[in-house]
Amino acid sequence: MSEQPGFLFTFFNTRVLLAALPEVAKGFLLTVELALLVVASGLAIGLLAAMLRLGGRWWINLPLIFVVDLLRAVPPLVIIVLLFFGLPSLDVELSAFVTTWITLAAVLAAFAEEIFWASIRAVPKGQKEAARSLGLGALQTLLLVTLPQALRIAVPPLTNRTIAIVKGTAFGSVVGLSDILGAAQSVTSFTANPSPLILGAAAYVVLFTPIILLARWIESRLAWSH
Protein backbone atom coordinates (compact mmCIF):
# COMPACT_ATOMS: atom_id res chain seq x y z
CA MET A 1 0.00 0.00 0.00
CA SER A 2 2.07 2.91 -1.21
CA GLU A 3 -0.85 5.32 -0.82
CA GLN A 4 -0.25 5.38 2.91
CA PRO A 5 1.52 8.71 3.42
CA GLY A 6 4.72 8.75 5.45
CA PHE A 7 4.89 9.50 9.15
CA LEU A 8 6.72 12.79 8.63
CA PHE A 9 4.28 13.85 5.94
CA THR A 10 1.39 13.12 8.29
CA PHE A 11 2.53 14.48 11.63
CA PHE A 12 5.30 16.94 10.75
CA ASN A 13 4.06 18.26 7.44
CA THR A 14 6.15 21.38 6.84
CA ARG A 15 3.67 23.03 4.50
CA VAL A 16 0.77 22.56 6.91
CA LEU A 17 2.90 23.57 9.88
CA LEU A 18 3.91 26.81 8.17
CA ALA A 19 0.29 27.55 7.33
CA ALA A 20 -0.78 26.81 10.91
CA LEU A 21 1.99 28.80 12.56
CA PRO A 22 0.33 32.26 12.49
CA GLU A 23 -2.97 30.91 13.87
CA VAL A 24 -1.32 28.87 16.62
CA ALA A 25 0.94 31.83 17.49
CA LYS A 26 -2.15 34.00 17.91
CA GLY A 27 -3.65 31.26 20.05
CA PHE A 28 -0.45 31.14 22.09
CA LEU A 29 -0.70 34.85 22.93
CA LEU A 30 -4.38 34.45 23.82
CA THR A 31 -3.57 31.51 26.12
CA VAL A 32 -0.78 33.49 27.82
CA GLU A 33 -3.03 36.52 28.28
CA LEU A 34 -5.83 34.38 29.70
CA ALA A 35 -3.43 32.52 31.98
CA LEU A 36 -2.00 35.73 33.44
CA LEU A 37 -5.47 37.16 34.04
CA VAL A 38 -6.60 33.93 35.73
CA VAL A 39 -3.55 33.75 37.99
CA ALA A 40 -3.64 37.43 39.02
CA SER A 41 -7.37 37.65 39.70
CA GLY A 42 -7.70 34.14 41.14
CA LEU A 43 -4.89 34.51 43.67
CA ALA A 44 -5.95 38.03 44.68
CA ILE A 45 -9.57 37.00 45.28
CA GLY A 46 -8.42 33.85 47.08
CA LEU A 47 -6.22 35.81 49.48
CA LEU A 48 -8.99 38.34 50.11
CA ALA A 49 -11.48 35.55 50.80
CA ALA A 50 -9.06 33.87 53.22
CA MET A 51 -8.68 37.13 55.19
CA LEU A 52 -12.45 37.55 55.19
CA ARG A 53 -12.79 34.04 56.60
CA LEU A 54 -10.23 34.79 59.30
CA GLY A 55 -12.62 37.46 60.54
CA GLY A 56 -14.58 34.53 61.91
CA ARG A 57 -18.15 35.79 61.40
CA TRP A 58 -20.39 32.78 60.79
CA TRP A 59 -22.74 34.61 58.43
CA ILE A 60 -19.77 35.34 56.18
CA ASN A 61 -17.99 32.01 56.64
CA LEU A 62 -20.91 29.65 56.08
CA PRO A 63 -21.80 30.91 52.58
CA LEU A 64 -18.10 31.42 51.79
CA ILE A 65 -17.20 27.82 52.63
CA PHE A 66 -20.22 26.59 50.68
CA VAL A 67 -19.19 28.48 47.53
CA VAL A 68 -15.58 27.33 47.93
CA ASP A 69 -16.70 23.70 48.28
CA LEU A 70 -18.97 24.08 45.26
CA LEU A 71 -16.11 25.40 43.13
CA ARG A 72 -13.83 22.60 44.32
CA ALA A 73 -16.36 19.83 43.61
CA VAL A 74 -17.78 20.84 40.22
CA PRO A 75 -15.51 20.32 37.18
CA PRO A 76 -14.43 23.65 35.61
CA LEU A 77 -15.52 22.43 32.18
CA VAL A 78 -19.05 22.01 33.52
CA ILE A 79 -19.04 25.56 34.91
CA ILE A 80 -17.75 26.96 31.60
CA VAL A 81 -20.46 25.14 29.65
CA LEU A 82 -23.11 26.25 32.17
CA LEU A 83 -22.15 29.93 32.00
CA PHE A 84 -21.67 29.97 28.25
CA PHE A 85 -24.91 28.23 27.30
CA GLY A 86 -27.00 29.16 30.34
CA LEU A 87 -26.47 32.88 30.91
CA PRO A 88 -27.81 34.02 27.51
CA SER A 89 -31.31 33.04 28.72
CA LEU A 90 -30.92 35.85 31.29
CA ASP A 91 -29.81 38.16 28.47
CA VAL A 92 -26.22 38.02 29.74
CA GLU A 93 -23.93 37.05 26.87
CA LEU A 94 -20.32 36.51 27.83
CA SER A 95 -17.63 35.77 25.27
CA ALA A 96 -15.77 32.46 25.40
CA PHE A 97 -12.73 34.37 26.70
CA VAL A 98 -14.59 36.06 29.57
CA THR A 99 -16.45 32.83 30.43
CA THR A 100 -13.21 30.86 30.68
CA TRP A 101 -11.50 33.65 32.61
CA ILE A 102 -14.30 34.03 35.18
CA THR A 103 -14.61 30.27 35.67
CA LEU A 104 -10.92 29.50 36.10
CA ALA A 105 -10.35 32.59 38.26
CA ALA A 106 -13.23 31.54 40.55
CA VAL A 107 -11.96 27.95 40.77
CA LEU A 108 -8.40 29.10 41.48
CA ALA A 109 -9.70 31.59 44.07
CA ALA A 110 -11.54 28.75 45.84
CA PHE A 111 -8.48 26.50 46.02
CA ALA A 112 -6.22 29.43 46.93
CA GLU A 113 -8.58 30.50 49.72
CA GLU A 114 -8.34 27.03 51.28
CA ILE A 115 -4.55 26.97 51.02
CA PHE A 116 -4.05 30.55 52.30
CA TRP A 117 -6.49 30.03 55.16
CA ALA A 118 -4.97 26.73 56.28
CA SER A 119 -1.45 28.19 55.98
CA ILE A 120 -2.30 31.26 58.04
CA ARG A 121 -3.79 29.01 60.71
CA ALA A 122 -0.68 26.83 60.63
CA VAL A 123 1.51 29.74 61.80
CA PRO A 124 2.04 29.17 65.54
CA LYS A 125 -0.15 31.31 67.79
CA GLY A 126 2.89 32.50 69.74
CA GLN A 127 4.04 34.48 66.68
CA LYS A 128 0.89 36.54 66.68
CA GLU A 129 0.94 36.98 70.44
CA ALA A 130 4.57 38.07 70.39
CA ALA A 131 3.87 40.61 67.64
CA ARG A 132 0.89 42.02 69.51
CA SER A 133 2.85 42.28 72.75
CA LEU A 134 5.57 44.19 70.87
CA GLY A 135 2.91 46.81 70.19
CA LEU A 136 2.02 45.93 66.58
CA GLY A 137 -1.59 46.51 65.59
CA ALA A 138 -3.84 43.71 64.31
CA LEU A 139 -3.31 44.67 60.66
CA GLN A 140 0.44 45.14 61.11
CA THR A 141 0.67 41.75 62.80
CA LEU A 142 -1.12 40.12 59.90
CA LEU A 143 0.90 41.85 57.17
CA LEU A 144 4.34 41.82 58.79
CA VAL A 145 4.39 38.66 60.90
CA THR A 146 1.66 36.15 60.06
CA LEU A 147 1.35 36.49 56.27
CA PRO A 148 5.07 36.25 55.39
CA GLN A 149 5.33 32.98 57.33
CA ALA A 150 2.04 31.69 55.96
CA LEU A 151 3.04 32.41 52.37
CA ARG A 152 6.11 30.25 52.81
CA ILE A 153 3.91 27.34 53.83
CA ALA A 154 1.41 28.09 51.07
CA VAL A 155 3.75 28.39 48.10
CA PRO A 156 4.42 24.72 47.19
CA PRO A 157 0.79 23.54 47.19
CA LEU A 158 -0.30 26.81 45.63
CA THR A 159 2.09 26.67 42.66
CA ASN A 160 1.10 23.09 41.84
CA ARG A 161 -2.60 23.90 42.04
CA THR A 162 -2.19 27.10 40.01
CA ILE A 163 -0.41 25.27 37.20
CA ALA A 164 -3.10 22.56 37.11
CA ILE A 165 -5.90 25.14 36.92
CA VAL A 166 -4.18 27.35 34.36
CA LYS A 167 -3.87 24.34 32.05
CA GLY A 168 -7.67 24.48 32.05
CA THR A 169 -7.45 27.44 29.65
CA ALA A 170 -7.64 24.70 26.99
CA PHE A 171 -11.27 24.13 28.10
CA GLY A 172 -12.08 27.46 26.42
CA SER A 173 -11.77 25.72 23.05
CA VAL A 174 -14.91 23.72 23.89
CA VAL A 175 -16.98 26.93 23.76
CA GLY A 176 -15.17 28.24 20.69
CA LEU A 177 -12.18 30.10 22.10
CA SER A 178 -9.30 30.37 19.62
CA ASP A 179 -6.61 29.59 22.16
CA ILE A 180 -3.72 27.26 21.30
CA LEU A 181 -5.94 24.19 21.26
CA GLY A 182 -8.84 25.92 19.50
CA ALA A 183 -6.58 27.33 16.78
CA ALA A 184 -4.74 24.02 16.31
CA GLN A 185 -8.01 22.13 16.02
CA SER A 186 -9.51 24.47 13.47
CA VAL A 187 -6.43 24.35 11.24
CA THR A 188 -6.35 20.56 11.60
CA SER A 189 -9.92 20.18 10.43
CA PHE A 190 -9.27 22.67 7.61
CA THR A 191 -6.19 20.89 6.28
CA ALA A 192 -7.22 17.32 7.18
CA ASN A 193 -3.74 16.89 8.67
CA PRO A 194 -2.85 16.47 12.36
CA SER A 195 0.43 18.44 12.22
CA PRO A 196 -1.18 21.57 13.77
CA LEU A 197 -2.24 19.47 16.77
CA ILE A 198 1.39 18.42 17.27
CA LEU A 199 2.39 22.08 16.97
CA GLY A 200 -0.26 23.04 19.53
CA ALA A 201 0.88 20.33 21.96
CA ALA A 202 4.47 21.52 21.53
CA ALA A 203 3.34 25.08 22.26
CA TYR A 204 1.80 23.98 25.56
CA VAL A 205 4.93 22.05 26.51
CA VAL A 206 7.07 25.13 25.71
CA LEU A 207 4.73 27.30 27.78
CA PHE A 208 4.37 25.08 30.85
CA THR A 209 7.63 23.16 31.18
CA PRO A 210 9.61 26.16 32.47
CA ILE A 211 6.84 26.89 34.98
CA ILE A 212 6.80 23.28 36.19
CA LEU A 213 10.58 23.26 36.55
CA LEU A 214 10.40 26.57 38.42
CA ALA A 215 7.77 25.11 40.75
CA ARG A 216 9.98 22.08 41.41
CA TRP A 217 12.89 24.36 42.18
CA ILE A 218 10.86 26.54 44.56
CA GLU A 219 9.57 23.41 46.27
CA SER A 220 13.06 21.99 46.81
CA ARG A 221 14.37 25.36 48.04
CA LEU A 222 11.61 25.71 50.61
CA ALA A 223 11.98 22.09 51.69
CA TRP A 224 15.74 22.57 52.06
CA SER A 225 15.48 25.52 54.41
CA HIS A 226 12.95 23.87 56.69
Binding site: I163, L181, Q185, I198, G200, A201
Partner: peptide
Protein backbone atom coordinates in the same frame (compact mmCIF):
# COMPACT_ATOMS: atom_id res chain seq x y z
CA UNK B 1 2.24 17.41 33.48
CA UNK B 2 2.96 20.23 31.02
CA UNK B 3 0.41 19.03 28.49
CA UNK B 4 -3.20 19.98 29.34
CA UNK B 5 -5.22 16.74 29.57
CA UNK B 6 -7.77 17.97 27.03
CA UNK B 7 -4.97 18.59 24.51
CA UNK B 8 -3.62 15.10 25.13
CA UNK B 9 -7.08 13.58 24.71
CA UNK B 10 -7.69 15.35 21.39
CA UNK B 11 -4.23 14.38 20.19
CA UNK B 12 -5.00 10.72 20.95
CA UNK B 13 -8.54 10.83 19.62
CA UNK B 14 -8.13 13.00 16.51
CA UNK B 15 -4.41 12.70 15.78
Amino acid sequence: RALPPLVLLILLYAG
